[in-house]
């Protein structure tokens, strides 16, 4: 008969505080997700920086040829570097959260894993990946002498956090909705391509005609990007933003998202 000399000690299931359990579950999920996505070889991680780098270079290239928008007072590298990563930040989180539950449903058999943990993990991972790439790209461009450091770092961080919060709120809404209605995932892609140019990736509000400015200000991500850019090169252009509006919008998104996450847990599941 087989011997089981290495039988682990019994009484393993330690009861911790809820906070401790949450922390443990999310960090375990995080590591699992990271290994799955980037693998053990670090080349997968490299694309995180290469992609925004390429975009930044392309934008800088195009702008130095055309040089039309805003009479060329805005430093093009800084403009591009604040545009693309910002859009990636709020765009990728919902994309990652859609269908996340379906592929992780079996984890719910472990009592301490809750649905919201799955979403939080994906949001955190995306948040950290995009932030890292933002910082690394900025540092590289700074080292190359193409980028001036931000005028007000706190404003940059604030704008970045607001964008991240917006993305997280959107992800908490679209994630559960995509679980219940299949069309959500199909609509997200075209919708996103409409919103992406409107979110300020490629323009500043002040360059718009007056009639369009008031409409553009309805987009919370545009407000946040303007704030971020105000922090980076605010002395060179006139930024338009309403932080109170963004915070209110984000709060509503988060609240609606969390309640949808609860509802999806009560619904039926397929396995």
């Amino acid at each position: 008969m087989h011997s089981n000399s290495s039988q682990p000690p019994t009484g393993a299931l330690v009861h911790h505080s809820p906070w401790e359990i949450n922390r443990r579950v999310i960090s375990a999920l995080f590591l699992r997700e990271m290994l799955t996505r980037y693998g053990r070889n670090n080349i997968g991680f490299l694309w995180l920086f290469v992609e925004p780098m390429l975009f930044t270079l392309v934008v800088v290239g195009i702008r130095s040829v055309t040089r039309s928008i805003y009479e060329g007072t805005i430093p093009m590298v800084a403009f591009a570097v604040t545009g693309w990563p910002s859009a990636m930040l709020w765009r990728n989180m919902p994309s990652r959260c859609m269908g996340a539950l379906k592929s992780n449903r079996s984890l719910l058999h472990h009592r301490q894993v809750r649905i919201v943990d799955i979403y939080i993990t994906r949001i955190l991972l995306e948040q950290m990946a995009t932030t890292t790439s933002f910082i690394v790209v900025s540092l590289i461009l700074f080292a190359a002498g193409w980028l001036m450091p931000p005028e007000d770092v706190l404003k940059v961080i604030g704008g970045w956090l607001l964008l991240g919060w917006f993305g997280a709120g959107l992800a908490l809404i679209l994630g559960p909705l995509s679980e219940r209605y299949e069309f959500v995932a199909h609509f997200w892609r075209p919708t996103m391509y409409i919103f992406l140019p409107l979110s300020g990736v490629a323009f500043v509000v002040d360059a718009l005609p007056h009639s369009l400015q008031s409409i553009a200000m309805w987009f919370p991500m545009l407000n946040a990007i303007e704030y971020l850019r105000d922090g980076w090169f605010g002395s060179l252009f006139h930024a338009h933003y309403d932080i109170g509006y963004v915070v209110t919008f984000n709060l509503c998104l988060t609240f609606a998202g969390l309640s949808l996450v609860r509802q999806v847990g009560l619904g039926p599941s397929e396995e």
Binding site: N4, S6, L13, V14, H16, E20, R24, L31, H110, Q112
Partner: peptide, 18 residues
Amino acid sequence: CRIYGVDYQPRFEFVKDF
């Protein structure tokens, strides 16, 4: 082991064995 908050090494030995 992570989500249940238990030591990895003895359990890994057990899994390998079993």
